[in-house]
Amino acid sequence: MATVEPKLILLFSGKRKSGKDYVTDLIHQRLGADVCCVLRLSRPLKQQYAQDHGLDLGELLGAGEYKEKYRADMIQWGEQQRVKDPGFFCRLAVRGAQQPIWIVSDTRRLSDLQWFWREYPSQSRCVRVEASEETRMERGWVFTEGIDDAESECGLDQGVDFDWIIKKRGRWITAGGAACYWAALNS
Score class of each variant (00 low, 15 high):
Asp149Asn: 12
Asp106Leu: 10
Glu133Arg: 11
Trp77Ser: 14
Tyr120His: 09
Gln29Asn: 09
Cys36Ser: 12
Leu110His: 11
Gln123Leu: 09
Asp149Thr: 08
Arg169Gln: 15
Pro44Met: 07
Pro86Cys: 14
Trp164Ile: 00
Tyr49Met: 00
Asp163Pro: 05
Asp52Asn: 02
Arg125Glu: 11
Thr24Leu: 00
Asp34Tyr: 14
Arg171Pro: 07
Arg108Tyr: 09
Leu110Val: 12
Ala183Asp: 07
Leu39Trp: 01
Ala93Leu: 14
Ser132Arg: 12
Arg125Phe: 13
Ser42Pro: 03
Asp106Phe: 04
Trp182Tyr: 15
Thr107Asn: 08
Glu119Arg: 09
Val127Trp: 00
Gly62Ile: 02
Gly140Leu: 00
Leu156Tyr: 07
Gly14Ala: 07
Ser105Val: 01
Glu134Ser: 09
Arg95Val: 12
Tyr66Ser: 08
Ser124Val: 06
Arg95Asp: 13
Leu60Cys: 06
Gln47Val: 00
Val83Asp: 10
Asp163Arg: 07
Ala33Asn: 15
Val127Gln: 02
Arg118Ala: 07
Glu79Gly: 11
Leu39Glu: 05
Asp21Ile: 04
Pro121Glu: 12
Ser105Arg: 05
Ser42Leu: 00
Gln98Gly: 06
Leu26Ser: 13
Ala175Gln: 08
Leu10Ala: 04
Gln76Cys: 07
Gln80Ala: 13
Gly96Phe: 02
Leu26Pro: 01
Tyr181Asp: 08
Val38Pro: 03
Lys168Ala: 15
Glu119Trp: 04
Cys37Val: 12
Cys36Arg: 05
Gly58His: 03
Trp141Val: 10
Ile101Lys: 09
Gln123Val: 09
Leu41Glu: 05
Arg82His: 04
Gln29Phe: 11
Ile147Phe: 03
Tyr22Asp: 03
Gln80Lys: 13
Asp52Gly: 02
Asp148Tyr: 07
Phe116Trp: 09
Ile147Asp: 02
Trp77Gly: 14
Gly87Lys: 00
Asp149Pro: 04
Trp117Pro: 00
Arg95Tyr: 08
Gly19Thr: 03
Asp149Arg: 04
Asp25Pro: 00
Gly32Cys: 05
Ile147Ser: 03
Val38Lys: 05
Ser18Cys: 07
Glu59Trp: 07
Leu92Val: 05
Leu26Cys: 13
Gly19Cys: 08
Ser13Ile: 08
Glu119Val: 09
Cys37Asp: 02
Val127Lys: 03
Glu134Gln: 15
Pro121Ala: 13
Leu26His: 13
Thr174Tyr: 11
Arg125His: 15
